[in-house]
């Protein structure tokens, strides 16, 4: 193990396992620079530990406790109305009521849709039977009839013309 790794172990001596501590102690006893570093680091850590043991205390502990409790009470009051609503909505009765209402609504919408579907089907049937938009047979029938009527008119007029021509000739 090189010096750098022992340096890290010296800084983390408190966190080492007992086996790691033994190995590090053996090295410190043999190595001059690591020994000097260990002496300094352990002294500094003792000093920091002493500083840490003197805790910072609140100037007025009672006042801070009261301030905390007052703010909690205020927060509780502001949320109590909302919480009441949440508790009511969370109750078993309301849950069952909402479930029943949901089932009713789903049934109603389903039945409504079924009814609408039946209506649409009937309309389609009517359109297929009597509709004139896409049904060409009715148009052709009418067209043929119009054509026949026209031809009849033409032939009638031609007959009357020929007759009048014959009369003129005999005169």
């Amino acid at each position: 193990m090189n010096r750098c790794e022992f340096e890290k172990r010296i800084y983390l001596y408190r966190e080492l396992t007992s086996v790691e501590k033994e190995i590090t102690d053996v090295h410190i006893a043999q190595c001059q620079s690591c020994s000097e570093l260990a002496t300094r680091v352990f002294q500094e850590q003792n000093l920091i530990s002493n500083i840490g043991s003197s805790k910072f205390s609140v100037k007025n502990s009672q006042q801070l406790t009261q301030r905390i409790m007052n703010s909690i009470e205020r927060a509780e009051k502001s949320t109590s109305g909302f919480n009441g609503l949440i508790t009511f909505l969370d109750s078993l009765f309301v849950r069952y009521a909402f479930s029943a209402l949901s089932i009713l609504l789903i049934t109603f919408f389903y039945m409504e849709q079924q009814h609408e579907g039946h209506k649409a089907q009937t309309i389609n049937k009517i359109e297929v039977n009597h509709g004139s938009i896409l049904n060409t047979s009715s148009f052709l029938k009418a067209h043929q009839k119009r054509r026949e009527d026209k031809e009849k008119t033409i032939s009638a007029s031609r007959y009357s013309y020929n007759r009048s021509e014959r009369i003129v000739k005999t005169l």
Binding site: K55, F56, S57, V58, K59, S61, L64, T65, R67, I68, S71, I72, A75
Partner: peptide, 28 residues
């Protein structure tokens, strides 16, 4: 627990006013 909470926050923030605010918010 407020003494310990205050001590920790004071070491972090370095001033009493902010530390008390942090302790109060933490307990809320």
């Amino acid at each position: 627990n407020q003494a310990f909470a205050y001590s920790v926050s004071y070491r972090f923030l370095g001033n009493a006013e902010d530390s008390e605010d942090v302790v109060q918010e933490a307990f809320i």
